[in-house]
Write a protein that binds this DNA or RNA. Structure first.
Lengths: 230, 230
DNA sequence: ACAAAAAAGAGAGCACCGCTCTTGCATTGG
DNA sequence: CCAATGCAAGAGCGGTGCTCTCTTTTTTGT
């Protein structure tokens, strides 16, 4: 049982969580670049070297935060989607996209950590892949439902992408038409372009009504994928 | 005359350039996070404190590199566009977008510097705005030419964006239809979503034929803005 | 032409960083 | 009960951005 696994193991779990919490606090306050192991340790009343019992390096701590961030945005998107699960595909698509944007605005530094410049020299371990895929899976699911309901118009697909499209379908798109799979990947990347530009300040003096603009852009993305209107 | 302005001023320009060159070298090699004033000074055979005569802080050096990067990608896009200036609007659009992607792949760390996570606590000074706008101005120009040639189909525009769209037109879109201006801004952001996802590794195990995929996605963007086919 | 002023480099030093290693103490499992 | 393990602490290494002072060199004003 997990209750009988000894005080030491319990303490380890708690300390690990405390470190991540404090690190997340500093991340939110100052950004990834200013996340300092020494400062985390100081705040927790321990000495910096003690942290290395829990995270072998600063990058490993960052990796843990990255995975948590992917899970956090994934969960936010899933929750938002569940609330409109019975609505039309366009509304569900919009809900997911707006959840991503809302999470990004609420956690800018965590967003930057996962969708901004990669930490130099740092390569994301395979463990980050499943959490990172959660939002994409939602979008795929919506497209699938649309197809099942006959509300999916197949966009055109250039000849030189047929093979690539077939591979995508086989890899992760299940029973979607190849043209939709490719369009979906493009829309997925474009969605994060919109969020990143808003968050990273490129929309300053360009877009004022960010909500309305995002709603519009996201709807365009949905139509581009083939999701039927209303 | 600039030749009579004294040896000191000449030397200052040269040293400033040398510092930026060496900094850019380190930036390309290791990324912005590992750019070290001391290392730059060491490589240049000066002492670290001497650098502060030229750049008051590390962030100011970064700002200089940011402006240069914007100019660099802007120039790359302008050059590529000039080479196909007489072709159709769709081809010109594609040329600009592919120039951006090519530049990004060739200068990943500089790209990350300007389109990745902003440096924490750092706010871009107004001086960065004109260089940052160069690519966008190209895209606007293409849309304008298309309109003048009657090859621009006006996309739909939701009612709650009319005011926003009018403002955009007044601010930077000249004589474009409001609906096109808004769509253009969206496409502009989406373009960088595509490039960023490829560059930052989100396409790993997702997109294999990156060139073909990008060509396809960029063409979709152009059509979405209303640029007529062929 | 010469003195005053401005600019630039050198060096020492401060406070911080990530990370390593060794040393003791506490907990745990056989 | 006791040896093995886990863990915190401390000292220390090499690095960082940045400041301050001191000296030398160049420019400038009279």
């Amino acid at each position: 049982m997990s209750t009988t696994q000894g005080a030491r193991a319990r303490a380890r779990i708690e300390v690990t969580a405390a470190i991540k919490d404090e690190a997340r606090r500093q991340l939110a306050a100052e950004g990834a670049a200013k996340l300092s192991l020494r400062a985390v340790a100081r705040e927790l009343g321990m000495v910096s070297s003690a942290l290395y019992r829990y995270f072998p390096s600063r990058d490993d701590l960052l990796t843990a935060l990255i995975i948590d961030a992917y899970d956090s945005v994934g969960e936010a998107a899933e929750t938002a989607h569940a609330e409109v699960a019975d609505a039309g595909v366009l509304l569900r698509w919009t809900a997911v996209c707006e959840a991503v944007r809302g999470w990004a605005l609420a956690h800018p530094h965590e967003y930057a950590l996962i969708y901004g410049s990669p930490v130099p020299g740092y390569v994301a371990p395979e463990t980050t892949v499943p959490p990172a895929a959660r939002v994409a899976l939602l979008l795929i699911g919506i497209a699938r439902d649309a197809q099942r309901a006959g509300m999916l118009a197949e966009p055109p697909l250039p000849a030189d992408l047929h093979a690539e499209a077939e591979r995508m379908v086989a890899d992760f798109a299940g029973d979607l038409p190849p043209a939709v799979a490719v369009a979906l990947v493009a829309a997925w990347a474009e969605l994060y372009g919109l969020v990143s530009f808003e968050l990273f300040g490129q929309f300053r003096r360009v877009v004022e009504d960010r909500e309305a603009f995002f709603r519009y852009a996201v709807r365009r993305l949905a139509l581009g994928v083939g999701l039927a209107d209303v």
